[in-house]
């Protein structure tokens, strides 16, 4: 599902719906997308092709950098800590890779994307919206559509809080994968209205490999640190 594609050479992935064909002396990448065909001509030498899970904010086109996950409400006692397992929408990135660098070639997904507004039109943010089931132990999702998010929630307030929303910034969103894509996130709740979320540079389980991030693929030399995260100022429920 993820990993390296044999290249140079012809290839067809029925699972992902793309193929690589000979075009004279070179190769061409083809993917059918509705009524159109995405066609990109590839360099013949010195590259490899990999398919990795990427930050799920790219389709149908990028309008936001925030991912909002909505889940059944969780009640958190004052100063309590709880770990839950959620899902996130899966987007596949096809990358061209050389020894030193890599370049994004295409992104596709089996999920139907949906967007939402977190907060108000004046001060809120547009988010990529995803509804998730909740589980208290690691459960295999529909791995062609969803990845696993292990979310560690800490209620740092002195009152009970009901949580059903988490918004994450994709500028630092390390995704790991084996047969399933996974992320580890944390959420510190300061009040019913305010929480801080981060995606941590950790694996959901041992043996997972790090996915190539699109953000770096675009050469954004951003020093957004793991700790920066996203400040949810418009409520957690």
């Amino acid at each position: 599902m993820f990993g390296r594609v044999t290249y140079p050479g012809t290839y067809e992935s029925k699972e992902h719906g793309f193929r690589i064909e000979h075009d004279g002396n070179s190769f061409v990448y083809l993917r059918e997308n509705g009524n159109t065909v995405i066609e990109k001509h590839l360099p013949q030498h010195g590259i490899s092709l990999v398919v990795h899970p990427v930050e799920p904010i790219n389709l149908p086109r990028e309008v936001t950098r925030c991912l909002e996950i909505v889940f059944p409400p969780v009640l958190m006692a004052p100063e309590a800590h709880q770990t839950i397992f959620l899902t996130f929408p899966l987007e596949y990135g096809v990358f061209l890779r050389t020894d030193e660098d890599y370049q994004l070639l295409d992104v596709f997904s089996r999920c139907i994307p949906k967007y939402s507004l977190y907060g108000t039109p004046e001060s809120g943010v547009i988010t990529r919206y995803h509804e998730s089931d909740i589980s208290h132990m690691e459960k295999e999702p529909d791995r062609t559509r969803n990845g696993i998010l292990r979310l560690e929630i800490r209620n740092e307030s002195r009152g009970w809080v009901e949580v059903s929303h988490a918004v994450f910034d994709s500028y630092f969103m390390p995704i790991y994968f084996d047969t399933v894509a996974g992320m580890v996130g944390e959420m510190k709740i300061y009040s019913r209205l305010m929480a801080q979320t981060n995606i941590l540079d950790r694996k959901v389980r041992e043996g997972m490999e790090p996915a190539l991030p699109i953000i770096r693929a675009r050469k954004i030399m951003n020093i957004d640190l793991e700790r920066k995260g996203f400040l949810m100022e418009h409520g957690v429920a």
Binding site: P60, V63, I112, K114, Y115, S116, L117, Y118, I126, Y129
Partner: peptide, 8 residues
């Protein structure tokens, strides 16, 4: 069904 018709 439209991605950019906001959910909320």
């Amino acid at each position: 069904a439209h991605p950019f018709v906001l959910k909320n």
